[in-house]
Design a protein around this nucleic acid. Sequence first.
DNA 1: ACCTGAACACCGTTCAAGT
DNA 2: ACCTGAACACCGTTCAAGT
Lengths: 225, 225
Amino acid sequence: MVKKARSSPRREEALSRDRIVEAAIELLDGDGEGSLTLRTLSERLATGPGAIYGHVANKSDLLTAACDTIVVRAVATAPGKTPQANLRALALAMFDAMDAHPWVGSALIQSAGQMPMVRLLERIGQQLRALRVPDDAQWAAASALLHYMLGVGGQNAANAQFARARGADRSDFLDAVAAAWSRLDPAEYPFARSVAGQLRAHDDRVDFLAGIDLILRGLKSPRGR
Amino acid sequence: MVKKARSSPRREEALSRDRIVEAAIELLDGDGEGSLTLRTLSERLATGPGAIYGHVANKSDLLTAACDTIVVRAVATAPGKTPQANLRALALAMFDAMDAHPWVGSALIQSAGQMPMVRLLERIGQQLRALRVPDDAQWAAASALLHYMLGVGGQNAANAQFARARGADRSDFLDAVAAAWSRLDPAEYPFARSVAGQLRAHDDRVDFLAGIDLILRGLKSPRGR
DNA sequence: ACCTGAACACCGTTCAAGT
DNA sequence: ACCTGAACACCGTTCAAGT
């Protein structure tokens, strides 16, 4: 927790991309998305802001690299017995990663078409092949699963940042949302109001998996109207 | 296209929240997410940056309000014959809105728990009730549909911004992504590589609807393993 | 009461100067 | 070759001063 104890914290190890990314993850995990600044980062690395650009193209590249580090760990789950089990395990691993590192959700969305997203898409696609999903249905299925995960992750990240900005924790945030939804016009917002009361009781992790299962069920049922 | 023709462009109409939001939308649509600045906005409104804070709490509030304006229009679709038809129409209206205004996707994700998102959730929930989805399954279904839409929208927004940053259009961007995916290790990324070639041929709108239909199919099929 | 716009406290990024 | 850190061109936001 001590921030600058030593007056001349000369670096022992040389600056490297890995060390920079690692420090960025620590910053993001510790104090949220807003705390990652080229200045705070270079301070933590005991260097100047310019030095970082020797190893990283720009801030966006850095964020994608940090995100990729987390995703690599998350998708490296032990293979299960069935493709369904693998998909569920992958989904839960990603949920847990995005829950532990709330900034990953938004970084993942921002990294459209780049490595972290491709890793995820690849794992999903491979399990769909193992599930013997027809070739012409694989893309739609993979895309649905991927975008669903991205949506949940992005929303999770927004919630976390919103709560942090108000100095509140997740629980206070949910209370505030539930209260706001309860104040909506009953004639116009019956569903939101009915859901508001249950908002607090829900387990996001269970809900997330229920969404995955819903999509997987759709995959097994016959196509066409 | 002329930016400052008159030297003293005195405002005719008084400043109002609506006029500010309207100008913000024009800026966002015209030059992308990065172009919305309190300074550019106040310039366009022929006032100082401070004046805007009399009608809008902060930039985040402004972005949410702009997003809400678009969402209100999009969800106001004529009722169809069946709940399924309504859900598909709602999904397509949202896709078209997020396609025409690429910044809406990220604004929607950022506005966690606030009006634009609630409007969407409410429309989805009402159709699920009409579909006679059991009470205890409504939340999971609504959440899956909502998060899927958010994921696609967010990804769309990221693509658009990425392409704009490179001065490329959507087509160039897709070419670059397809080329990058084709360069991946065939042993490790068979799925991404197989999909890379088709990337250009896909119609995002059709794919989006396919995802919605996949979730709806899952809803109709029996639960449990 | 509302607007104005200079000022504050930041950003990401660059690049001459150092080692 | 690599690091340093001042400097540049911006941000969102505030607030004394004006009307």
